[in-house]
């Protein structure tokens, strides 16, 4: 059981996404529960990032029904709905401003003033409290990634979509970001959808894991079952590096 009543945040049926006549996603059904951490794994080009963009309402699906928090999502949902979801991209683009301004950015968009205590706590959590006024151009890759996750976490959205949040990071920064995700989830109970190539990370963080192959959802199950007794042979092959793309 993910939450008290197994309440759904996303309920998706017959989702198809097509680019230039090519099917990118073909998912019959996908349920994402409130308060769960769901890891989506799969090889490059499997449709993981496309799925995240659809979950973030950044692009409309070619067809399919998407229910978010009980609301049927039309082509362009209201800004109120859009702001219930935040996403960290695989290659986050920060604004050419200070670390502090970047972290406050999403709050300012919502017309909210940042709580100084929360902001200081966030800066401290990402280990950047000494660099609050520094321009992001002076930061290292790991620090940039930390700013990117901080600006997403501070929004306290119902859903948090993380597209390979630790790609290209060293073990220290990877561990730091994983801790941030864990702490945030513990405190705010957000639903987190994590796309990762790091199977160990999926195992460490997620309640459930899903495998996407060629746009198809092959299996979605509890992390334990996914890694220890998968139903589909392709999951086992993927986990053991036997699927070659």
């Amino acid at each position: 059981m993910i939450n008290d009543n197994n309440q759904l945040l996303y309920n998706i049926n017959n989702l198809h996404q097509i680019y230039n006549g090519r099917t990118i996603l073909n998912i019959n059904h996908l349920s994402i529960y409130k308060q769960e951490i769901l890891a989506i794994v799969g090889p490059n080009g499997a449709g993981k990032s496309t799925l995240l963009r659809i979950l973030n309402f950044l692009e409309a699906a070619h067809n399919g029904q998407i229910y978010f928090d009980g609301e049927s999502i039309e082509k362009t949902p209201s800004i109120h709905t859009i702001r219930k979801v935040a996403m960290m991209f695989q290659n986050p683009q920060l604004l050419n401003k200070s670390v502090r301004s970047n972290i406050e950015y999403g709050l300012k968009l919502r017309g909210k003033r940042s709580n100084e205590l929360v902001l200081q706590e966030t800066l401290k959590n990402v280990g950047l409290n000494q660099y609050a006024q520094n321009k992001v151009s002076s930061l290292s890759g790991g620090e940039l990634q930390r700013v990117a996750i901080a600006r997403t976490l501070i929004l306290n959205t119902k859903a948090l979509l993380l597209d390979e949040p630790t790609s290209n990071l060293d073990p220290y920064n990877t561990d730091l970001i994983e801790q941030l995700i864990r702490t945030h989830h513990k405190l705010h109970k957000s639903t987190i959808v994590l796309v990762t190539h790091n199977l160990h990370q999926a195992r460490r963080l997620a309640h459930r894991c899903a495998l996407l192959l060629d746009g198809n959802l092959i299996e979605i199950s509890s992390t334990k079952d996914f890694f220890e007794k998968p139903n589909d042979k392709r999951v086992s092959e993927f986990i053991h590096g036997k699927i070659i793309y």
């Binding site: 963009r53 859009i82 702001r83 991209f89 683009q93 950015y105 600006r151 929004l155």
Partner: peptide, 10 residues
């Protein structure tokens, strides 16, 4: 991707 990233932040 900047416009999409900005949109994704609300």
């Amino acid at each position: 991707s900047l416009p999409q990233q900005v949109t994704s932040l609300g």
